[in-house]
Design a binder for these strands. Structure first.
Lengths: 202, 202
DNA sequence: GTAATCTATGTCAGAGGATGACTTATCACA
DNA sequence: TGTGATAAGTCATCCTCTGACATAGATTAC
Protein backbone atom coordinates (compact mmCIF):
# COMPACT_ATOMS: atom_id res chain seq x y z
CA UNK A 1 0.00 0.00 0.00
CA UNK A 2 1.54 3.31 -1.15
CA UNK A 3 1.66 6.52 0.79
CA UNK A 4 -1.22 7.84 -1.20
CA UNK A 5 -3.51 4.94 -0.35
CA UNK A 6 -2.65 5.14 3.33
CA UNK A 7 -3.31 8.85 3.43
CA UNK A 8 -6.68 8.35 1.77
CA UNK A 9 -7.66 5.71 4.28
CA UNK A 10 -6.62 8.02 7.10
CA UNK A 11 -8.77 10.82 5.69
CA UNK A 12 -11.69 8.44 5.31
CA UNK A 13 -11.53 7.48 8.95
CA UNK A 14 -10.96 11.06 10.07
CA UNK A 15 -14.15 12.10 8.27
CA UNK A 16 -16.05 9.18 9.75
CA UNK A 17 -14.89 9.87 13.30
CA UNK A 18 -15.52 13.60 13.08
CA UNK A 19 -18.98 12.94 11.68
CA UNK A 20 -19.93 10.37 14.32
CA UNK A 21 -18.86 12.72 17.11
CA UNK A 22 -20.73 15.66 15.63
CA UNK A 23 -23.84 13.56 15.07
CA UNK A 24 -23.83 12.30 18.65
CA UNK A 25 -23.18 15.79 19.97
CA UNK A 26 -25.72 17.82 18.08
CA UNK A 27 -27.90 15.36 16.20
CA UNK A 28 -27.79 13.93 12.71
CA UNK A 29 -30.04 16.37 10.89
CA UNK A 30 -28.58 19.46 12.44
CA UNK A 31 -25.04 18.55 11.46
CA UNK A 32 -24.17 19.80 8.00
CA UNK A 33 -21.67 18.35 5.58
CA UNK A 34 -19.96 21.72 5.71
CA UNK A 35 -19.36 21.29 9.44
CA UNK A 36 -18.00 17.79 9.01
CA UNK A 37 -15.71 18.93 6.22
CA UNK A 38 -14.62 21.86 8.34
CA UNK A 39 -13.77 19.59 11.27
CA UNK A 40 -11.31 17.59 9.17
CA UNK A 41 -10.23 20.59 7.11
CA UNK A 42 -11.29 19.46 3.69
CA UNK A 43 -13.66 21.09 1.25
CA UNK A 44 -17.27 19.90 1.19
CA UNK A 45 -16.67 18.78 -2.39
CA UNK A 46 -13.97 16.42 -1.18
CA UNK A 47 -16.30 14.98 1.42
CA UNK A 48 -18.51 13.74 -1.41
CA UNK A 49 -15.54 12.06 -3.01
CA UNK A 50 -15.07 9.89 0.09
CA UNK A 51 -18.71 9.29 0.89
CA UNK A 52 -21.36 9.38 -1.80
CA UNK A 53 -23.80 11.07 0.56
CA UNK A 54 -24.25 12.13 4.15
CA UNK A 55 -26.33 8.99 4.66
CA UNK A 56 -23.49 6.88 3.35
CA UNK A 57 -21.55 7.66 6.53
CA UNK A 58 -23.99 5.48 8.40
CA UNK A 59 -23.85 2.59 5.95
CA UNK A 60 -20.17 1.78 6.04
CA UNK A 61 -20.78 -0.87 8.68
CA UNK A 62 -23.51 -2.48 6.72
CA UNK A 63 -21.35 -2.61 3.60
CA UNK A 64 -18.54 -4.13 5.61
CA UNK A 65 -20.83 -6.76 7.10
CA UNK A 66 -22.29 -7.61 3.72
CA UNK A 67 -18.85 -8.31 2.34
CA UNK A 68 -18.06 -10.69 5.16
CA UNK A 69 -21.37 -12.46 4.78
CA UNK A 70 -20.94 -13.04 1.06
CA UNK A 71 -17.40 -14.31 1.56
CA UNK A 72 -18.39 -16.64 4.37
CA UNK A 73 -21.35 -17.95 2.46
CA UNK A 74 -19.12 -18.81 -0.49
CA UNK A 75 -16.76 -20.72 1.80
CA UNK A 76 -19.41 -22.92 3.40
CA UNK A 77 -19.88 -26.47 2.09
CA UNK A 78 -22.39 -26.52 -0.74
CA UNK A 79 -24.49 -29.28 0.79
CA UNK A 80 -25.01 -27.48 4.09
CA UNK A 81 -28.62 -26.28 4.55
CA UNK A 82 -28.79 -22.67 3.39
CA UNK A 83 -30.14 -21.18 6.59
CA UNK A 84 -27.39 -22.84 8.60
CA UNK A 85 -24.79 -21.36 6.27
CA UNK A 86 -26.34 -17.95 6.63
CA UNK A 87 -26.24 -18.21 10.41
CA UNK A 88 -22.53 -19.01 10.13
CA UNK A 89 -22.07 -15.99 7.91
CA UNK A 90 -23.76 -13.88 10.52
CA UNK A 91 -21.51 -15.21 13.26
CA UNK A 92 -18.55 -14.34 11.08
CA UNK A 93 -19.65 -10.72 11.14
CA UNK A 94 -19.82 -10.86 14.92
CA UNK A 95 -16.40 -12.43 15.17
CA UNK A 96 -15.06 -9.67 13.01
CA UNK A 97 -16.41 -7.08 15.41
CA UNK A 98 -15.17 -8.97 18.46
CA UNK A 99 -11.66 -9.23 17.05
CA UNK A 100 -11.36 -5.67 15.81
CA UNK A 101 -9.14 -2.91 17.16
CA UNK A 102 -10.37 -0.64 19.97
CA UNK A 103 -10.81 2.18 17.45
CA UNK A 104 -13.01 0.07 15.25
CA UNK A 105 -15.01 -1.17 18.20
CA UNK A 106 -15.57 2.36 19.36
CA UNK A 107 -16.83 3.38 15.93
CA UNK A 108 -19.20 0.44 15.93
CA UNK A 109 -20.60 1.30 19.33
CA UNK A 110 -20.94 4.96 18.43
CA UNK A 111 -22.85 4.00 15.33
CA UNK A 112 -25.20 1.90 17.43
CA UNK A 113 -25.81 4.75 19.84
CA UNK A 114 -26.45 7.04 16.92
CA UNK A 115 -28.99 4.69 15.41
CA UNK A 116 -30.77 4.30 18.70
CA UNK A 117 -31.20 8.05 18.82
CA UNK A 118 -32.29 8.30 15.20
CA UNK A 119 -34.72 5.62 14.02
CA UNK A 120 -34.55 7.01 10.50
CA UNK A 121 -31.00 5.74 10.31
CA UNK A 122 -32.10 2.26 11.24
CA UNK A 123 -34.47 2.45 8.32
CA UNK A 124 -31.57 3.47 6.12
CA UNK A 125 -29.62 0.43 7.12
CA UNK A 126 -32.61 -1.84 6.67
CA UNK A 127 -33.13 -0.39 3.21
CA UNK A 128 -29.57 -1.22 2.32
CA UNK A 129 -30.30 -4.68 3.67
CA UNK A 130 -32.90 -5.16 0.95
CA UNK A 131 -30.16 -4.62 -1.61
CA UNK A 132 -27.90 -7.10 0.16
CA UNK A 133 -30.67 -9.64 0.25
CA UNK A 134 -30.88 -9.70 -3.51
CA UNK A 135 -27.26 -10.79 -3.72
CA UNK A 136 -27.70 -13.35 -0.99
CA UNK A 137 -30.73 -14.79 -2.73
CA UNK A 138 -28.67 -15.30 -5.86
CA UNK A 139 -25.97 -17.08 -3.92
CA UNK A 140 -28.47 -19.27 -2.08
CA UNK A 141 -30.45 -20.09 -5.21
CA UNK A 142 -27.25 -21.06 -7.02
CA UNK A 143 -26.32 -23.41 -4.19
CA UNK A 144 -29.75 -24.94 -4.19
CA UNK A 145 -29.69 -25.27 -7.96
CA UNK A 146 -32.88 -23.32 -8.56
CA UNK A 147 -33.91 -20.20 -10.47
CA UNK A 148 -33.80 -17.20 -8.09
CA UNK A 149 -36.72 -15.63 -9.93
CA UNK A 150 -39.01 -18.56 -9.45
CA UNK A 151 -38.03 -20.18 -6.18
CA UNK A 152 -39.81 -18.56 -3.28
CA UNK A 153 -38.07 -20.67 -0.69
CA UNK A 154 -34.69 -19.14 -1.48
CA UNK A 155 -36.18 -15.73 -0.90
CA UNK A 156 -37.79 -16.83 2.32
CA UNK A 157 -34.59 -18.40 3.64
CA UNK A 158 -32.60 -15.23 3.07
CA UNK A 159 -35.37 -13.02 4.40
CA UNK A 160 -35.70 -15.06 7.60
CA UNK A 161 -31.94 -15.05 8.04
CA UNK A 162 -31.53 -11.34 7.59
CA UNK A 163 -34.31 -10.45 9.93
CA UNK A 164 -32.93 -12.83 12.52
CA UNK A 165 -29.75 -10.81 12.27
CA UNK A 166 -31.64 -7.58 12.63
CA UNK A 167 -33.52 -8.77 15.70
CA UNK A 168 -30.27 -9.97 17.21
CA UNK A 169 -28.67 -6.58 16.82
CA UNK A 170 -31.46 -4.84 18.67
CA UNK A 171 -30.14 -4.91 22.20
CA UNK A 172 -32.33 -3.49 24.93
CA UNK A 173 -29.49 -2.07 27.02
CA UNK A 174 -28.69 1.52 26.06
CA UNK A 175 -24.92 1.20 26.17
CA UNK A 176 -24.45 -2.44 25.45
CA UNK A 177 -20.90 -3.74 25.19
CA UNK A 178 -19.65 -5.92 22.38
CA UNK A 179 -19.81 -9.15 24.43
CA UNK A 180 -23.37 -8.36 25.43
CA UNK A 181 -24.36 -7.81 21.83
CA UNK A 182 -22.63 -11.03 20.78
CA UNK A 183 -24.44 -12.98 23.45
CA UNK A 184 -27.78 -11.48 22.48
CA UNK A 185 -27.12 -12.35 18.89
CA UNK A 186 -26.31 -15.95 19.77
CA UNK A 187 -29.56 -16.18 21.72
CA UNK A 188 -31.55 -14.89 18.77
CA UNK A 189 -29.94 -17.37 16.40
CA UNK A 190 -30.79 -20.17 18.78
CA UNK A 191 -34.36 -18.93 19.09
CA UNK A 192 -34.76 -18.78 15.32
CA UNK A 193 -33.35 -22.25 14.85
CA UNK A 194 -35.64 -23.64 17.53
CA UNK A 195 -38.64 -22.08 15.77
CA UNK A 196 -38.02 -23.59 12.36
CA UNK A 197 -38.73 -27.14 11.31
CA UNK A 198 -35.54 -29.17 10.85
CA UNK A 199 -34.80 -29.43 7.16
CA UNK A 200 -37.13 -26.61 6.10
CA UNK A 201 -34.27 -24.96 4.23
CA UNK A 202 -33.26 -27.95 2.12
CA UNK B 1 -67.33 15.34 4.41
CA UNK B 2 -67.51 19.00 3.43
CA UNK B 3 -66.70 20.49 0.07
CA UNK B 4 -63.31 21.51 1.32
CA UNK B 5 -62.35 18.03 2.38
CA UNK B 6 -63.48 16.49 -0.87
CA UNK B 7 -61.57 19.02 -2.90
CA UNK B 8 -58.45 18.30 -0.92
CA UNK B 9 -58.76 14.59 -1.46
CA UNK B 10 -59.21 15.18 -5.17
CA UNK B 11 -56.05 17.26 -5.30
CA UNK B 12 -54.16 14.59 -3.35
CA UNK B 13 -55.08 11.94 -5.87
CA UNK B 14 -54.41 14.24 -8.81
CA UNK B 15 -50.90 14.84 -7.52
CA UNK B 16 -50.37 11.13 -6.94
CA UNK B 17 -51.58 10.13 -10.38
CA UNK B 18 -49.61 12.82 -12.16
CA UNK B 19 -46.49 11.84 -10.24
CA UNK B 20 -46.85 8.11 -10.92
CA UNK B 21 -47.29 8.74 -14.63
CA UNK B 22 -44.31 11.08 -14.80
CA UNK B 23 -42.15 8.67 -12.83
CA UNK B 24 -43.02 5.78 -15.10
CA UNK B 25 -42.49 7.91 -18.18
CA UNK B 26 -39.19 9.54 -17.43
CA UNK B 27 -37.85 7.93 -14.26
CA UNK B 28 -38.10 8.81 -10.59
CA UNK B 29 -34.92 10.80 -10.14
CA UNK B 30 -35.30 12.80 -13.30
CA UNK B 31 -38.78 13.95 -12.40
CA UNK B 32 -38.77 17.10 -10.31
CA UNK B 33 -41.34 18.27 -7.83
CA UNK B 34 -41.70 21.35 -9.99
CA UNK B 35 -42.82 19.18 -12.90
CA UNK B 36 -45.33 17.30 -10.80
CA UNK B 37 -46.71 20.51 -9.39
CA UNK B 38 -46.88 21.95 -12.89
CA UNK B 39 -48.84 18.95 -14.16
CA UNK B 40 -51.61 19.51 -11.60
CA UNK B 41 -51.28 23.29 -11.67
CA UNK B 42 -50.34 23.92 -8.10
CA UNK B 43 -47.27 25.60 -6.70
CA UNK B 44 -44.37 23.42 -5.58
CA UNK B 45 -44.92 24.76 -2.09
CA UNK B 46 -48.42 23.32 -2.11
CA UNK B 47 -47.09 19.96 -3.19
CA UNK B 48 -45.20 19.76 0.09
CA UNK B 49 -48.37 20.50 2.00
CA UNK B 50 -49.93 17.34 0.57
CA UNK B 51 -46.87 15.10 0.67
CA UNK B 52 -44.10 15.68 3.16
CA UNK B 53 -41.48 14.74 0.57
CA UNK B 54 -41.08 13.43 -2.93
CA UNK B 55 -40.37 10.01 -1.41
CA UNK B 56 -43.63 10.18 0.51
CA UNK B 57 -45.47 9.73 -2.78
CA UNK B 58 -44.23 6.18 -2.86
CA UNK B 59 -45.14 5.38 0.73
CA UNK B 60 -48.84 6.07 0.70
CA UNK B 61 -49.55 2.41 0.00
CA UNK B 62 -47.38 1.25 2.82
CA UNK B 63 -49.09 3.62 5.23
CA UNK B 64 -52.45 2.41 4.07
CA UNK B 65 -51.47 -1.23 4.53
CA UNK B 66 -50.04 -0.58 7.95
CA UNK B 67 -53.33 0.89 9.11
CA UNK B 68 -55.24 -2.16 7.96
CA UNK B 69 -52.76 -4.50 9.60
CA UNK B 70 -52.97 -2.77 12.96
CA UNK B 71 -56.75 -2.72 12.85
CA UNK B 72 -57.01 -6.36 11.89
CA UNK B 73 -54.52 -7.40 14.52
CA UNK B 74 -56.56 -5.65 17.17
CA UNK B 75 -59.69 -7.48 16.04
CA UNK B 76 -58.22 -10.99 16.19
CA UNK B 77 -58.92 -13.15 19.26
CA UNK B 78 -56.29 -12.57 21.93
CA UNK B 79 -55.54 -16.25 22.37
CA UNK B 80 -54.76 -16.86 18.71
CA UNK B 81 -51.05 -17.50 18.08
CA UNK B 82 -49.45 -14.19 17.12
CA UNK B 83 -48.00 -15.28 13.79
CA UNK B 84 -51.37 -16.64 12.71
CA UNK B 85 -53.00 -13.30 13.57
CA UNK B 86 -50.35 -11.47 11.59
CA UNK B 87 -50.97 -13.66 8.57
CA UNK B 88 -54.65 -12.79 8.83
CA UNK B 89 -53.75 -9.13 8.99
CA UNK B 90 -51.70 -9.55 5.87
CA UNK B 91 -54.56 -11.23 4.06
CA UNK B 92 -56.77 -8.33 5.06
CA UNK B 93 -54.43 -6.00 3.17
CA UNK B 94 -54.75 -8.23 0.12
CA UNK B 95 -58.51 -8.31 0.38
CA UNK B 96 -58.53 -4.56 0.53
CA UNK B 97 -56.60 -4.39 -2.71
CA UNK B 98 -58.76 -7.02 -4.36
CA UNK B 99 -61.94 -5.17 -3.45
CA UNK B 100 -60.80 -1.69 -4.38
CA UNK B 101 -62.01 0.47 -7.27
CA UNK B 102 -60.36 0.20 -10.70
CA UNK B 103 -58.64 3.55 -10.09
CA UNK B 104 -57.12 2.34 -6.86
CA UNK B 105 -56.06 -0.93 -8.41
CA UNK B 106 -54.37 0.90 -11.22
CA UNK B 107 -52.47 3.09 -8.79
CA UNK B 108 -51.33 0.01 -6.91
CA UNK B 109 -50.10 -1.71 -10.06
CA UNK B 110 -48.36 1.42 -11.26
CA UNK B 111 -46.59 1.70 -7.95
CA UNK B 112 -45.43 -1.89 -8.27
CA UNK B 113 -44.07 -1.30 -11.74
CA UNK B 114 -42.34 1.81 -10.49
CA UNK B 115 -40.68 -0.07 -7.67
CA UNK B 116 -39.54 -2.81 -10.00
CA UNK B 117 -37.77 -0.22 -12.08
CA UNK B 118 -36.28 1.58 -9.08
CA UNK B 119 -34.87 -0.68 -6.34
CA UNK B 120 -34.14 2.36 -4.22
CA UNK B 121 -37.86 2.80 -3.77
CA UNK B 122 -38.21 -0.76 -2.52
CA UNK B 123 -35.62 0.14 0.08
CA UNK B 124 -37.68 3.15 1.02
CA UNK B 125 -40.71 1.01 1.61
CA UNK B 126 -38.72 -1.53 3.57
CA UNK B 127 -37.34 1.27 5.71
CA UNK B 128 -40.85 2.39 6.50
CA UNK B 129 -41.56 -1.22 7.33
CA UNK B 130 -39.03 -1.05 10.15
CA UNK B 131 -41.08 1.73 11.68
CA UNK B 132 -44.29 -0.29 11.30
CA UNK B 133 -42.64 -3.27 12.91
CA UNK B 134 -42.06 -1.35 16.09
CA UNK B 135 -45.76 -0.75 16.45
CA UNK B 136 -46.60 -4.34 15.61
CA UNK B 137 -44.12 -5.59 18.18
CA UNK B 138 -45.86 -3.55 20.83
CA UNK B 139 -49.22 -4.97 19.87
CA UNK B 140 -47.90 -8.53 19.80
CA UNK B 141 -46.01 -8.17 23.07
CA UNK B 142 -49.12 -6.78 24.73
CA UNK B 143 -51.17 -9.77 23.55
CA UNK B 144 -48.55 -12.18 24.76
CA UNK B 145 -48.29 -10.34 28.06
CA UNK B 146 -44.55 -9.70 27.89
CA UNK B 147 -42.25 -6.68 27.90
CA UNK B 148 -41.55 -5.65 24.29
CA UNK B 149 -38.07 -4.50 25.31
CA UNK B 150 -37.07 -7.83 26.72
CA UNK B 151 -38.93 -10.45 24.77
CA UNK B 152 -37.02 -11.45 21.68
CA UNK B 153 -39.69 -13.83 20.47
CA UNK B 154 -42.18 -11.01 19.93
CA UNK B 155 -39.62 -9.27 17.76
CA UNK B 156 -38.90 -12.43 15.84
CA UNK B 157 -42.57 -13.19 15.23
CA UNK B 158 -43.19 -9.76 13.78
CA UNK B 159 -39.97 -9.80 11.78
CA UNK B 160 -40.77 -13.18 10.26
CA UNK B 161 -44.30 -12.06 9.47
CA UNK B 162 -43.29 -8.85 7.80
CA UNK B 163 -40.64 -10.45 5.68
CA UNK B 164 -43.07 -13.16 4.66
CA UNK B 165 -45.26 -10.34 3.41
CA UNK B 166 -42.39 -8.77 1.57
CA UNK B 167 -41.41 -12.02 -0.13
CA UNK B 168 -45.04 -12.58 -1.09
CA UNK B 169 -45.24 -9.22 -2.79
CA UNK B 170 -42.24 -9.90 -4.95
CA UNK B 171 -43.87 -11.39 -7.99
CA UNK B 172 -41.63 -12.56 -10.80
CA UNK B 173 -43.98 -11.60 -13.63
CA UNK B 174 -43.34 -8.07 -14.89
CA UNK B 175 -46.95 -7.04 -15.23
CA UNK B 176 -48.62 -9.25 -12.71
CA UNK B 177 -52.34 -8.81 -12.17
CA UNK B 178 -53.97 -8.49 -8.79
CA UNK B 179 -55.23 -12.09 -8.72
CA UNK B 180 -51.74 -13.33 -9.59
CA UNK B 181 -50.22 -11.32 -6.78
CA UNK B 182 -52.86 -12.54 -4.38
CA UNK B 183 -52.19 -16.13 -5.33
CA UNK B 184 -48.46 -15.69 -4.96
CA UNK B 185 -48.98 -14.17 -1.57
CA UNK B 186 -51.14 -17.07 -0.45
CA UNK B 187 -48.43 -19.48 -1.57
CA UNK B 188 -45.81 -17.62 0.42
CA UNK B 189 -47.93 -17.62 3.53
CA UNK B 190 -48.42 -21.35 3.17
CA UNK B 191 -44.70 -21.87 2.64
CA UNK B 192 -43.85 -19.87 5.74
CA UNK B 193 -46.38 -21.73 7.86
CA UNK B 194 -45.04 -25.05 6.63
CA UNK B 195 -41.50 -24.00 7.60
CA UNK B 196 -42.24 -23.08 11.17
CA UNK B 197 -42.77 -25.49 14.04
CA UNK B 198 -46.39 -25.63 15.17
CA UNK B 199 -46.76 -23.56 18.30
CA UNK B 200 -43.46 -21.69 17.92
CA UNK B 201 -45.29 -18.39 18.29
CA UNK B 202 -47.05 -19.16 21.55
C1' DG C 1 -76.40 39.29 3.53
C1' DT C 2 -72.58 40.81 5.61
C1' DA C 3 -68.81 40.58 8.89
C1' DA C 4 -65.46 37.91 11.10
C1' DT C 5 -62.80 33.90 10.89
C1' DC C 6 -60.48 30.11 9.33
C1' DT C 7 -57.63 27.71 6.07
C1' DA C 8 -55.79 26.50 1.58
C1' DT C 9 -52.79 28.39 -1.57
C1' DG C 10 -49.28 31.33 -3.58
C1' DT C 11 -44.96 34.05 -3.38
C1' DC C 12 -40.48 34.77 -1.90
C1' DA C 13 -36.17 33.88 0.22
C1' DG C 14 -32.92 30.71 1.74
C1' DA C 15 -30.58 26.54 3.75
C1' DG C 16 -28.65 22.27 2.80
C1' DG C 17 -27.46 18.12 -0.13
C1' DA C 18 -25.40 16.77 -4.26
C1' DT C 19 -23.04 17.03 -9.00
C1' DG C 20 -20.37 18.66 -13.12
C1' DA C 21 -16.58 21.33 -15.09
C1' DC C 22 -12.47 23.16 -14.47
C1' DT C 23 -8.11 24.37 -12.04
C1' DT C 24 -4.43 23.68 -8.81
C1' DA C 25 -1.58 20.96 -5.85
C1' DT C 26 0.59 16.70 -4.71
C1' DC C 27 2.55 12.34 -5.35
C1' DA C 28 4.87 8.53 -8.15
C1' DC C 29 7.98 6.98 -11.15
C1' DA C 30 11.16 7.19 -15.04
C1' DT D 1 14.15 16.61 -12.15
C1' DG D 2 10.52 16.49 -15.08
C1' DT D 3 6.27 14.38 -16.54
C1' DG D 4 1.96 12.07 -16.12
C1' DA D 5 -1.53 10.57 -12.92
C1' DT D 6 -4.58 11.60 -9.39
C1' DA D 7 -6.28 13.96 -5.20
C1' DA D 8 -8.12 18.18 -3.70
C1' DG D 9 -10.10 22.81 -4.19
C1' DT D 10 -13.12 26.32 -6.52
C1' DC D 11 -17.11 27.77 -8.68
C1' DA D 12 -21.57 27.39 -10.52
C1' DT D 13 -25.76 25.18 -10.40
C1' DC D 14 -29.76 22.01 -9.63
C1' DC D 15 -33.03 20.14 -6.59
C1' DT D 16 -35.42 19.17 -2.22
C1' DC D 17 -37.47 21.11 1.50
C1' DT D 18 -38.81 24.87 5.04
C1' DG D 19 -40.19 29.26 7.21
C1' DA D 20 -42.47 33.72 6.90
C1' DC D 21 -45.75 36.35 5.08
C1' DA D 22 -49.62 37.78 1.98
C1' DT D 23 -53.90 36.66 -0.32
C1' DA D 24 -57.99 34.54 -1.89
C1' DG D 25 -61.68 31.71 -0.97
C1' DA D 26 -64.73 29.06 2.03
C1' DT D 27 -67.29 28.72 6.52
C1' DT D 28 -69.65 30.26 10.32
C1' DA D 29 -72.18 33.53 13.19
C1' DC D 30 -75.05 37.20 13.58
Amino acid sequence: MGLRERKKEKTRLAILDAALDLFLEQGYESTTVEQIAGAVEISPRTFFRYFTSKDHLVLWFHDHGQEIMLETLASRPADEPAFTSLMHAMRAVLNDIASSTPDETERFLKLRRLMEAHPRLVGLSVARGAETERRLVEAVAARRGVDPEEDQLSHLIVAFASCTMRVGFECPRRDATVPEITRRMAETIELAERSLLPGWDR
